[in-house]
Design a binder for these strands. Structure first.
Length: 283
DNA sequence: ATGCCTATTATTAATAGA
């Protein structure tokens, strides 16, 4: 009976690689060591033609990507599968030229991979763009929730949600990652019903996903929590584990972000529908 | 207030990141 079989776990990860070609050895080593089932990548910093399809295929991953020269760029990898692309732009602004969103269905989960604008220097046009992007995200996220399906909105949000998510909150008060209006915009998503997966399992722990290259931030553990996995309720009920692969930040030629991951149990198998009969009072 | 580091692009310096 498949209904009696133990649920297997599906591992979904996000990793801002900060240059997919310069970071390829790190990425391949991490894929080999941790074998995530779905991976959202940000900051490819490469045009579509320079995406390392062959190397990732050799590593066992199908991929879709939305690149851009020099900056931005997002991709979704799936272990032993091809992600089914459902979208490659965040709705709400047809003039937005940045490659910051891509979305796919993988193994029954709709996965949105996002790279939110940084917003610095603030105030200024970059902050305005970030706030508009957050509004567009909230509008689209509400629409997704309405479908009642398993969805993960995953990536580099460039938002420090609370004081617990930054080594020294007072230093960041006027930074676009931590401004009150930016934090409020993130809270809007949570109030809609999205679950901050890592925080939901570890409500009180200091957890960072980013350490600046400057000022020996990694050595001092002067970090920020910027990379988040937001889950729709039908997926959040299946959450069984979460973590940050911090050690990757210490590898040679590391990204300034570390990979973050969750594990969700496979969807409970549908019970065979009983036929209407006098033996089945529910029928 | 600025540089501190790292990556990309274009050519030894500029721009962006967070």
């Amino acid at each position: 009976m498949d209904s009696a079989a133990p649920d297997r776990a599906m591992r979904i990860a996000t990793f801002n690689v900060n240059g997919i070609n310069g970071r390829l050895p790190v990425l391949l080593r991490w894929l080999e060591e941790t074998k995530p089932d779905v991976v959202c990548l940000q900051e490819l910093k490469a045009p579509d033609a320079r995406f390392p399809t062959v190397e990732l295929e050799k590593a066992g991953y199908g991929a879709i990507w939305h690149g851009q020269r020099s900056w931005n760029g997002v991709a979704i990898l799936a272990r032993g599968r091809e992600p089914i692309e459902t979208r490659r732009d965040l709705p709400g602004d047809p003039d937005d030229q940045h490659s910051r969103y891509i979305e796919a269905a993988v193994n029954g989960v709709l996965v949105g991979c996002l790279y939110l604008p940084n917003g610095n220097p603030a105030p200024g046009p970059k902050l305005d763009y970030k706030l508009l992007w957050l509004e567009r995200l909230a509008t689209y996220a509400a629409e997704l929730l309405g479908h009642g399906i398993p969805v993960a909105l995953v990536g580099d949000y460039n938002v420090i949600p609370t004081n617990l998510d930054v080594y020294k909150p007072e230093r960041w008060q006027k930074d676009a990652l931590f401004l009150p209006e930016v934090r409020r915009a993130f809270q809007v998503l949570l109030r809609q019903g999205w679950i901050d997966a890592v925080r939901s399992l570890y409500p009180d722990e200091t957890i960072y996903t980013f350490w600046d290259y400057l000022r020996n931030a990694w050595g001092r553990n002067a970090g920020l929590r910027l990379d988040h996995l937001l889950l729709s309720p039908p997926l959040a009920t299946r959450l069984v584990a979460a973590g940050v692969d911090c050690e990757v930040r210490g590898w040679d030629r590391a990204s300034d972000h570390a990979p973050v991951w969750i594990e969700v149990s496979d969807a409970p198998s549908r019970r065979p529908r009983r036929s209407r009969s006098k033996d089945n009072p529910d029928g």
